[in-house]
């Protein structure tokens, strides 16, 4: 089982992101479960959503306490929420930011993690370019596919198109693709840096 936790703020599409991810996993023939953190739904309040992907039916209903991957939609949560609770050092982290981990004050924090599993992605910028709106969901899911290889970009695209029809869907797909390329490139650069 692969467990994902998504952190963001009310209105950023945290719940939608987990749902789309679960649909992408379903499209690829996996069992998947997505659910929100059941909080009061207020704009701007910290919100958490969860997604599980497995080859077997998923029975558990507990929140994801020990995630394999964390997606952070909003870096302002870094000082408010225990975002990394339960994450093992072999876990994946994708942070929506155009800053570096050092800029965010996460340089020291990140050292125990595998370098190519703790990556930043300017998902909001990709969203602004493609959608004209700061909704980083689709881009983060594209980035997640590149980071973890748990689902393919095709599956993410298919799930996005199921959720958003027409032009909105295509623009979100474009944002996801841009982020996918960005993360793929970032991983390649880290691989080269390691071999150099």
């Amino acid at each position: 089982m692969f467990q994902i936790r998504i952190h963001g703020r009310g209105g950023q599409g945290v719940v939608t992101a987990a749902e789309i991810l679960s649909v992408a996993a379903f499209v690829e023939g996996h069992h998947a479960q997505a659910f929100p953190s059941f909080g009061s739904e207020r704009m701007g309040a910290p919100v958490v959503s969860f997604c599980r992907i497995d080859s077997r039916p998923i029975r558990t209903r507990e929140p994801v306490m020990e995630p394999d991957a964390i997606i952070i939609q909003d870096v302002t949560l870094l000082h408010q929420v225990d975002l990394f609770a339960g994450l093992a050092t072999e876990g994946f982290v994708l942070v929506n930011t155009s800053q570096s981990l050092d800029d965010l004050g996460l340089g020291e924090f990140g050292r125990p993690f595998q370098r190519d599993r703790l990556l930043t992605c300017p998902a909001t910028e990709f969203a602004l370019e493609q959608l004209g709106k700061p909704l980083p969901n689709a881009a983060l899911l594209g980035g997640f596919a590149a980071l973890t290889a748990q689902v393919s970009l095709d599956a993410i695209d298919s799930a996005i198109r199921q959720r958003f029809e027409g032009t909105t869907g295509e623009r979100n797909v474009a944002a996801a693709t841009a982020a996918y390329r960005f993360i793929t490139l970032a991983k390649e650069e880290l691989t080269h840096a390691a071999t150099d």
Binding site: V15, S22, F26, F38, R61
Partner: peptide, 12 residues
């Protein structure tokens, strides 16, 4: 049916 846990869960 359990509120949120089932009503708001997306699954097959």
């Amino acid at each position: 049916m359990d509120g949120f846990i089932l009503t708001h869960a997306v699954e097959g």
